[in-house]
Amino acid sequence: MARITAAIASSHVPAIGAAIDNGKTEEAYWKPLFEGYEWTKQWLKEEKPDVVILVYNDHASAFSMDMIPTFAIGCAEEYQSADEGWGPRPVPPVVGEPDLAWHIAQSCILDEFDLTIINKMDVDHGLTVPMSLMFGQPDAWPVKVVPIAVNVVQYPPPTGNRCWMLGEAIARAVESFPEDLNVQIWGTGGMSHQLQGPRAGLINQDFDNAYLDDLTENPQRLREMPHIEYLREAGSEGIEMVMWLIMRGALGDNVKPLHRHYHVPGSNTAVGHLVLKPE
C-alpha cells in the first residue's frame, strides 16, 4: 500500500532558484537562507521518498488567462522547466508518476473533488525551486513527482477549508493505491510577501510564525482563515500559504514538527520551511 509518510512546507521564491543556478548560495546574503535547508537535505537522503505530491501554484507559465483551473493534477510522464521570461532554469526534467497521479485523479473525482487532468505542461519556479532546495543540483531528481497546481492568481482562489478537504481526499486516494510507495506531500509558496503596488515589500513575521506554530497547534484556525486576512496581514502574494493547507489536510489530526526554518528576506519574500510527520 502507498502511504504518506511526511510533509514539507517551503516558500518557492524565483530568486532562490537563480541563486542556486548561478552558484551564489555561499554568499553572505543567501547563506543563512540555504543553511536552514541542510537538515532537510540530509533527512531526505535517509527517508528516500519514492514520490512527492507537490502542491504549488503556476505563476502565469502553464496557465494563461485562457484557462484557469482551480485544482489541477499532473498526470504526465515528464515535465520540462518553463521559460518564465529569462530562459528555462537549468534543472533536470521532472519525472512524473502517471500511475499514481491517474489513481489520485480518478479517486478524488469519485470522492467529489473534480480535479482538472493535465497531460502536458511546463513547470515553473513554483515547483522547481522547492526541488532544488531539497535536493540541490543532481543530474536527475531522486524522486518522481505528482504536481498539484492550485489557482492563487485569479480571485477567488479556493478557501482554506476546501484546500484542507482536498488534502484529506488525496490522502484517502494514496492509501488505496496498491503499490508499496513511500509518498511525501509538499506544500509550497508564501510566506508573507507582496509583489505589487505601493504596499510591496510587506513582511509580517508575527503572522508567519503564528502560522508555522498553528500548523501543529491549532490547524483549525488556519482552516477557517478567510482570504482577506491573508491579504491584509501577509500581503497580496501571501495568499499562497492557503496551499499549505492541502498538505496539512493530508496528514490527519496530529502532526509532529521535525524541523523549522524562517528567514527574511529571500528577495521580496519571507522564507518559511517546515517538516512534519503525521502521528
Partner: peptide, 24 residues
C-alpha cells in the same frame, strides 16, 4: 497581473526585487 507583468521585466533582465521596488 504581476505574474504576467513579470515576463516584461524578465525580458528587461530585471529581477523581481528590482522591478517590484519601482512600484513603491
Amino acid at each position: 497581473n504581476i505574474y504576467f507583468l513579470a515576463k516584461i521585466f524578465s525580458t528587461d533582465g530585471l529581477s523581481f526585487l528590482q522591478a517590484v521596488g519601482t512600484m513603491t
